[in-house]
């Protein structure tokens, strides 16, 4: 199954949840936020949210910045 994570296409096997994807990417579960098809998915809903073909996932964190 193909999904897009931060704009890059990735092949996933089986029917993974968002939580599975986060684990697979070895991302820290805190201080990140996740969007599925342009809607924020609350942390508590990650494990119950199943991914589908061509889903677009955005995973963000924080970086140094002031403006621009």
């Amino acid at each position: 199954m193909k999904v897009f994570v931060n704009g890059e296409s990735r092949e996933l096997s089986g029917s993974p949840s968002l939580a599975d994807l986060i684990t697979q990417l070895e991302l820290p579960a805190t201080r990140i936020a996740v969007e599925l098809n342009r809607e924020v998915v609350r942390r508590n809903d990650w494990s119950g949210t199943m991914l589908h073909e061509n889903d677009r996932v955005e995973i963000v964190h924080f970086v140094g910045g002031g403006a621009d």
Binding site: L25, A33, V60, V63, A67
Partner: peptide, 9 residues
Amino acid sequence: TVAVRRVPL
């Protein structure tokens, strides 16, 4: 203030 960016995968 901090900025929001994509996590490097």
